[in-house]
Simulated scan of single mutants.
Amino acid sequence: MTKQRSRNLSPEDVELIVGLLDGWSGTLTWRGLIESVERRLYFCYTRQALHAHQRIRDAFGLCKERLARGSRRKGEKHISSEMRLLMERLARRDAEVERLKGENQRLMEQFVVWLYNAQIRGIGQAELGRPLPRVDRGQTKAELRVIGSGRRSPRA
């Protein structure tokens, strides 16, 4: 009996997994992440499947670095539960900001590559800045298009 294949990760799934990593505390391993994802999405993915997504791979690396830096801090034993909750929330937001800065940097680098390639091929700024063409949401069947435009149908 073969195991059924899990569905492909959607952009919403990737966003959920990245959010899990933003708020991760404790030891981070691929096995732990896979189990956490399975509890949330009810599908089991392999490390390779998760690692294939750039955003998950980068968020995992940033989370590892953040946890390594955080483990060096000591002396947080005598903090109230409210303060601890606020500190966890702040740490989650800081991790999200750090991840988004990295994603923004990669997008800017991609933009520079596109700009260079456009200049090499002689595409000007006016052509690059031209708006997208309007989508024609008219009838798809020719006879309905003819009737809708006020002309007589070929069948009539």
Rank of each mutant, 00 (worst) to 15 (best):
R92V: 01
L86E: 10
E88V: 06
R89M: 10
R84W: 07
E103V: 12
F111W: 12
E96H: 02
L86C: 13
N104K: 05
A118Y: 02
R106H: 05
L100Y: 04
E98P: 05
R106A: 15
R106W: 12
Q110C: 02
W114G: 01
K101A: 02
L86N: 13
M83D: 11
E98D: 14
V113W: 02
Y116R: 15
Q110G: 02
F111I: 10
R106K: 15
W114D: 06
L85G: 05
G102W: 11
E98K: 14
E103I: 10
R92M: 08
K101F: 08
F111H: 05
L100P: 04
E109K: 08
L85E: 03
R93N: 06
R106N: 02
N117W: 00
V112H: 02
F111Y: 05
R99I: 03
E96R: 14
V112Q: 07
Q105P: 01
M87C: 12
L85D: 06
V97G: 03
F111S: 06
R106Y: 10
E96I: 04
L86I: 02
Q110E: 13
M83V: 10
A118N: 12
R92C: 07
N117S: 06
V113Y: 01
E96P: 00
E103L: 15
L85K: 09
M87A: 13
R106I: 07
M87E: 14
W114I: 03
N117L: 04
Y116N: 05
L85A: 11
A91M: 13
K101S: 06
W114E: 04
M83A: 09
E109V: 08
G102D: 13
D94F: 00
M87L: 14
V113P: 00
M83T: 11
E88P: 04
Y116P: 00
L85I: 04
Q105V: 07
R93L: 10
A91K: 04
R84C: 09
L115T: 04
R93T: 06
R89E: 11
R99L: 07
M83P: 00
